[in-house]
Simulated assay, not measured.
Amino acid sequence: MPTDQQARAQAAAITPGGDPPEHERAPADRVRALFDGHSLSPGQRRIAQYLIDHLTEAAFLSITELAERVGVSQPSVTRFATALGFSGYPALREVLQPMALSAVAGTPETREELRRNELQAAVDAEIDNLENLRRVLADTDQVLDIGRELARSKPLTVLGLRISVSLAEYFAYAARRIHPDVRVVTRGGSVAYDALLQSRSAGGTWVLAFAMPRHAHETLAALRAARRTGLKVALITDLTLGPLVDEADAVLTAGTGSRLVFDSYAAPGMLAAALLQAMVDADPERTQARLESYEQVADQHNFFL
């Protein structure tokens, strides 16, 4: 973990991409920069947001006062400070106070402006994630290869637990239109293991797993269970290293938006859509037949407006 001196140096560093030195940036931007690149829980992001929205006041609050204002415990504030690389809240407050004083000395931003800028910054961060994904997809071989393997797996199991459920269900919903047997697993433990065993017994060869932060122990257990059954694992995650990646046979990465209290998933969603396209390209005749059949059923039963 960085020392307080290292954390302060990081806060004062010149930002990448030719941006001006930290002391020349708006105070709110300097506070946001403290939180960038750190994996914060939703509760910790609430603390971060409060500090951004109330900088000139919050930087001078005691740990007890800050905890009461945010509605969290004092240990939560301490864990938040240590997650940023500080020894505790006093060391973080020491960095925040000069920023607060410069905000008072300059033209103060209204709370509405701070909030608007924070939302815009969240969108900008997602644009960066998509730009990174665009560069990754410049070489399509890996996505096409994985899509081909998933298209061949009958049944195909799609796994997503906790916050990753929504991505797994999106992928499974679309994949069922082009694949004859898609099974989605959204519960961990023995329920997941049972589903994986059944999939392998039915002839399945691959499971596609989504693992977004915060990464759960039960996701790791499910991946290990899949490997024990004989299934291969394709993983979509934000990680490039770690135990989840170690359990996967193929890994596709996409960054998540972490500027707000809860993550956003523009890049992982785009990556999932690209993998669906790869499955389409792997068996275009089956895809066309299944899509036409589905449209006939949808018209017959008046599914859509």
Rank of each mutant, 00 (worst) to 15 (best):
Q120T: 10
R116Y: 04
G160F: 06
E149L: 12
F171T: 05
D139L: 03
D124R: 13
V158R: 00
N132Y: 06
L161R: 01
A168S: 07
L137I: 10
E118V: 04
R148D: 12
R152D: 03
R162A: 15
R183V: 11
F171A: 04
E131S: 13
Y173K: 10
S153D: 00
G147E: 01
P180W: 11
G160V: 07
R116W: 02
E131P: 00
T157I: 12
N132C: 11
N132P: 00
E149Y: 01
S153N: 00
A125E: 13
F171I: 02
R135T: 14
P155W: 09
S166R: 11
L156H: 02
D124S: 14
A121C: 05
I146Y: 03
N132A: 15
R135D: 15
D124T: 14
I146R: 01
I163E: 15
L133F: 02
I127R: 08
S166I: 11
A121V: 01
V182Q: 03
H179R: 00
I146S: 07
A121T: 11
R162F: 13
P155M: 10
R135H: 14
A151K: 05
R148K: 12
G147R: 00
L167E: 14
L161S: 07
R135C: 12
R134G: 14
N117W: 03
L156P: 01
V123M: 10
R177V: 13
D128A: 15
Y173G: 14
Y173V: 11
E126S: 15
R183H: 04
H179Q: 03
D124N: 11
Q120Y: 06
R115S: 09
T157D: 02
L133S: 05
P180V: 13
Y170G: 07
V165T: 14
G147S: 01
F171M: 05
A122I: 10
I146D: 08
R152H: 09
V123Y: 07
R176M: 11
